[in-house]
Design a protein around this nucleic acid. Structure first.
Lengths: 207, 207
DNA sequence: TTATTTATGTAATGCTCGCTATAATATGTA
DNA sequence: TACATATTATAGCGAGCATTACATAAATAA
C-alpha cells in the first residue's frame, strides 16, 4: 500500500548494523560514512529512514534495550530475588560473550565522556543507566515486601551496589575479561545479598 | 641557559590544563583547538612543546597517574591491608569529588570505545587499568604472605573484584553520584575482604 | 497515459578536524 | 653588531566530518 518507490533494504537489519557500530566504537567514534557502509545503504536513504545521526543513535539505543539488553527486565521477572539477580549477571555475561558482539554494555561504552557538541549522549546514557538501577531497586523493594529479603534491607543502596558492579564488569569486558573472570566477579557480588533464611524459618515453623 | 627565545608559558600548567580537558571530554571529544585555548598557547607552541595530539595525551596520562591518581600507590603502601584498600576507595572518592575535577577516572572515561583511528587509546587505557589491578593484586599477595589475609584468599580474584567495583564507581560518578553514595558503595565492597581474625588469634596465643 | 510520491545514486555543500608553512620576535653566542 | 637558535603569531593546508542538492528510478493514483 505504500505510495512511492519501495525501499530496497530492511530497516530493521540496517538498524541492527548501526547499533553494532555505535556499540563498538561509541557515538563520537562512529562516522556516518562507516554507518552507511555497514548498513549497506547510501546516505539519502539513511537520512530518509532514520533522520540525522542523533536520531539514528536514539533509535539504535531503544533497539539495544529492547533486544540484546532485554535480559535485564527478563531476569528481574524471576520470582526468587536471588535467582533474579543471578540471572541478571548471567544475562549480562551471555550478552557480552555472544560471538561477534562488542565487549561491554552500550550504556557504558557509548559515551562516558564526550565533546561539547554531544553532551546529550552522556546525559541520555546516564539516564538509561539510572533507569536500569531503578528497575533493580524496584525488584528489591518487591522482595522486601514479599519477605524474600529481610526488612532491614535498603533496596536503593543494595541496587546501587549491584548495578555498580555490573557497570564495572562492562569496563572489565572492554579490557578483554574472560567469561570465567566475569562469572567470578558476579559470584562475588551476589554475596552482597542477605543470605536466604527461608529454609531455616520454614523448618522452624514446621518443627 | 637555553639558546633561543624563552617560552612565555609554563609547560606544567599547560599540561595540567590539557589533562583536565582530556579527562572531562575523553580523547576523541577533545579538539586541539580547545586544547590550545585551555592551555592558553597557540598551536605551533603546543606542537613544539608536546608533539602531536597522541603524544600530548600520553604525557597527560602519565601526569594523571603521577599526580591526581597517585592516591592508589600511596594507599597501597599502608601496612594494614584492610586499611590500605579502604584508603584506596577513599582516595578515589576524594579525587573525584575534588571541586572542579571531572566526574570519574581518566582510565575509564578517556575511551572505553573509540573510532578505528584511535584504537591505541583504548589499548593504552586498558593496559593502565590492568596495571592498577596488578598493583592491588600484588598488595593482596603481600598480605597473604604476611598472614594479614588468610592463606585461602585468592589475591588475583579478590583484586579483580575490588578494582571492578572501583571502575563501576567511576561510571556512577559520571552519572552524578554523590560522595555519600560512593562511600556507601565502597563500604559494601570492603565486605568482600575476609574478616580480620588477628585479634582473635593474638588473644588465643596470649591465653 | 500522465501525474504524484517515494527511494536511490552521485556528488557537492560548509565546517571542523589535526597539522604545518611562513614570517616575525626575542633570547644567547661570536 | 651580526649570527644562530628557539618561540611566537597568523594563516592556511588537505582530509574527513555531518548533511544535503540534484537528477534518476520505481512504485501508486488519476
Amino acid at each position: 500500500m505504500p505510495r512511492g518507490r519501495p525501499r530496497l533494504f530492511n530497516p530493521d537489519k540496517a538498524l541492527d548494523a548501526a547499533l553494532m557500530l555505535f556499540w563498538r566504537h561509541g557515538y563520537e567514534g562512529t562516522s556516518l560514512a562507516a554507518l552507511a557502509e555497514a548498513m549497506d545503504i547510501n546516505m539519502p536513504s539513511l537520512y530518509g529512514a532514520f533522520g540525522n545521526k542523533e536520531s539514528l543513535f536514539r533509535k539504535a539505543l531503544v533497539r539495544y534495550i529492547e533486544r540484546p539488553a532485554s535480559y535485564l527486565s527478563n531476569a528481574l521477572k524471576t520470582p526468587d530475588v536471588r535467582l533474579a539477580i543471578r540471572k541478571m549477571f548471567q544475562g549480562a555475561i551471555d550478552m557480552v560473550m555472544e560471538p561477534g558482539h562488542p565487549d561491554g554494555c552500550l550504556l557504558v561504552q557509548g559515551a562516558l565522556a564526550s565533546g561539547p557538541a554531544s553532551e546529550w549522549v552522556r546525559r541520555e546514557l546516564s539516564q538509561r543507566r539510572a533507569g536500569a538501577e531503578a528497575a533493580v531497586r524496584r525488584r528489591l523493594e518487591r522482595a522486601v515486601d514479599e519477605a524474600d529479603l529481610p526488612a532491614s534491607t535498603d533496596p536503593a543502596r543494595l541496587a546501587r551496589y549491584l548495578i555498580t558492579v555490573l557497570w564495572g564488569m562492562s569496563v572489565q569486558a572492554a579490557g578483554g575479561a574472560t567469561r570465567e573472570q566475569l562469572l567470578d566477579i558476579s559470584n562475588h557480588a551476589l554475596r552482597a545479598l542477605p543470605p536466604d533464611h527461608k529454609v531455616a524459618k520454614l523448618s522452624l515453623h514446621s518443627a
